[in-house]
Design a protein around this nucleic acid. Structure first.
Lengths: 261, 261
DNA sequence: GAGCGGGTTCAGTATTGCCGAACGGTGTTT
DNA sequence: AAACACCGTTCGGCAATACTGAACCCGCTC
């Protein structure tokens, strides 16, 4: 573990949360190093365009190379590449926006976003992060994680984003059992009031979960009694097709193994 | 300049170009360090989710945190945030896709992409990089750079992407003079055969160029005698409005200063 | 089953990055 | 208007830290 690199990464995290950029002094005390140390790290990151310095204020912000690398990540991402076609198909079939996400530490990262067919202006959510326990994508993934990983995530803090957010591990354990039973996960206003989601897990050729795909939209439209079941079936089917694209074996076998682990 | 961080950044660059991921040995010899050194760096980057290791092959790929950071870069990017509304307006006005880009080292980085109104399937180009001398955005920016920076870029290698790419510095110097004269830059099949672009520079409150905005599309439609001039005017006007949003002074003054430098 | 290539671990060395103190600039306060 | 406070930056020396070479373990190939 090389210390200076770890600190450099911390700096990137700090700059990512500081909307207006941060100065050397602020960065130094946030990551707990001397000012010259932070300065040297920042200069190095700047040389690589990972951070940029405002010529006026002297403050540092994130740099353009991060966008390039983020894009390179997407293009080399197996799940993302394969999902593009399936996500568009699903969006057209169910008439809702479709997200594809992966688990990154304790939150879900949206790696693809297919807009709903005749939708008006919609914000592109690729790159957005959501606490795993507040979205359907996250529950779909975590439900099929190895026992140890799942337990670790349940032990960690579970912040509440809305009044409906499940913050009790026991409630989430129940949710996750439900996911393994039905093959899909549901979220109802747990991340943002009025928004809902339905998602199913995606597996690779080793049988491990690599991500999830699902529909998102307003609670009224998505979880309506009449449409809900059909939507769940469509999402689950798409997830299976996508899994097979990634080389996963027969779904039944795989799910069995995952549930037993 | 901290060595290990610089090497870590090199590793990210290497992994970004190696589509299928790269192993420790390959990384080590590409950046010219011993195998254990590369390993330690990779492990540290992995801890920060900047790279991920394939559980099967042991090879390393870029990690999800890069997408998050790239997204954070976009959200904190002044030009990008302000340009969203203007780019959509321009796209509707001219009926073509609109790109907003910044200069990153020797290439242009697309930070926003507004689709053309009734367009069919289009690929999202945010995060894409293009050599500066092969696109209108790049020429618009470089034409208004300080003399020293511009000269440095002209001295660097100018790879040819198509038969129409300008690879002679003298030809580009002429192009850039034209840009300063007319207030907009044109590109005709210099990056990809059949594609063209028209772009104008965007300035901030200090009078420095921070990026460019422009329309892209097929040569036939974009550079048609009848539409071309109107398009150029629309692009230039939008760029000025955007500049004013960023606090730039009167365009005439600013352009005078930029041309004189 | 021996050989190869891959990722990984370990211990020693000196290179390297870290820190305290000080500098020059800007904006603010008194 | 002068003094202050704050910030980004530079410098030099100490020692902590990161690099290297050799060795280890695994899976694959021949």
């Amino acid at each position: 573990m090389v210390q200076s690199v770890a600190r450099a990464i911390e700096i990137l995290r700090v700059l990512g949360t500081a909307a207006r950029g941060a100065g050397v002094t602020e960065v130094a005390e946030r990551i707990g190093v001397a000012k010259p140390t932070a300065h040297a790290l920042l200069r190095t990151l700047e040389a690589g365009q990972l951070v940029a310095q405002d010529h006026e204020t002297g403050k540092y912000r994130l740099g353009p190379a991060l966008l390039e690398l983020g894009n390179a990540y997407l293009e080399t991402h197996e799940l993302r590449v394969r999902s593009v076609a399936w996500a568009d198909g699903l969006a057209n079939r169910v008439g809702e926006a479709v997200w594809v996400g992966v688990l990154s530490a304790d939150h879900v990262l949206v790696v693809h976003h297919a807009f709903r067919p005749e939708g008006a202006v919609q914000i592109l959510e690729v790159g957005a992060v959501i606490p795993w326990h507040t979205c359907a994508l996250g529950k779909a993934i975590v439900a099929h994680l190895p026992e140890a990983d799942r337990a670790a995530l349940l032990r960690a803090p579970l912040p509440a984003l809305t009044g409906a957010t499940r913050t009790e591990p026991s409630a989430l354990v129940q949710d996750l059992e439900g996911v393994r039973g039905t093959g899909y996960a549901v979220e109802e206003g747990e991340a943002a009031i009025g928004d809902a989601g339905i998602a199913a897990p995606v597996f690779d050729h080793t049988g491990e979960v690599v991500g999830a795909i699902g529909a998102v939209g307003p609670v009224e439209r998505l979880l309506d009694e009449q449409t809900r079941d059909g939507l769940a079936v469509a999402v689950r089917e798409t997830a299976r097709h996508l899994s097979r694209d990634l080389g996963a074996g027969r779904p039944s076998t795989r799910r069995w193994v995952a549930a037993a682990s």
